[in-house]
Amino acid sequence: MKENIKISVQDLHLYYGDNHALKGVSMDIKKNSVTAFIGPSGCGKSTFLKTLNRMNDLVDNVSIEGKVFLDGDDIYDAGVDTTILRKKVGMVFQQPNPFPMSIYDNIAYGPRVHGIKDKKTLDKIVEQSLCGAAIFDEVKDRLKKSALGLSGGQQQRICIARALAVQPEVILMDEPTSALDPISTSKIEELMEELKKKYTVVIVTHNMQQAVRVADDTAFFLLGELVEFGDTKNLFSYPRDKRTEDYITGRFG
């Protein structure tokens, strides 16, 4: 059972200045599964997601207490190289954010960061990553064209491919479909089913149906607290906490 856990968070507190944004969150995220974080805006679900690859390091005035273990190693340990951490734990953002360069260079960006220069190796990684994000067929004839010319849904899959290119173990997705149309959304949801075979996927969503569709486990956050966490079907069918029940039945949110 224990070796099945990819990420283990223990009593995590996060403060933005005086604002206590995460209040003692503990959670075990299973390997090769999709875990969804749901909750109303401002509940801390995105903030919590960002603690998993230390993206909060970029924000001034943030202090963090508690422990986050990735395969048993504390990622907040003083000796941790965030470059290596973020290679293992990739991220896809809410707004598609391809870099202003060609599709090829977008995908090759991460591998190049980590020192891969060989053209053949890069070619292979680019093709594999684009296939992995189910967009290779759509862009294979225009790899040298700017990624900014693609549609929003395509751009987001380019961003997923870009994250895959560094061969991560975990992929964090921060509301990856909230800026997309329904068809692009369903493509990315299908993709998650595929991705979890090789990766551990964590997704923040404000769309509860999406959590039901894609997630094995679901966590419900409210006001910086982890209210309930467990098997998605159980959580939605038999919520243990009154607040979870109120939220999923649409009484607030």
Partner: peptide, 27 residues
């Protein structure tokens, strides 16, 4: 230069100077 470019680069493990050199200056 959109903040999302910086985040994207950092999210891939790029350091500050690398991000400046490859994303910010060209942009």
């Amino acid at each position: 230069v959109p903040e999302s470019y910086r985040q994207g680069a950092v999210g891939l493990g790029a350091g500050k100077w690398y991000t400046i050199r490859t994303i910010l200056l060209p942009s």
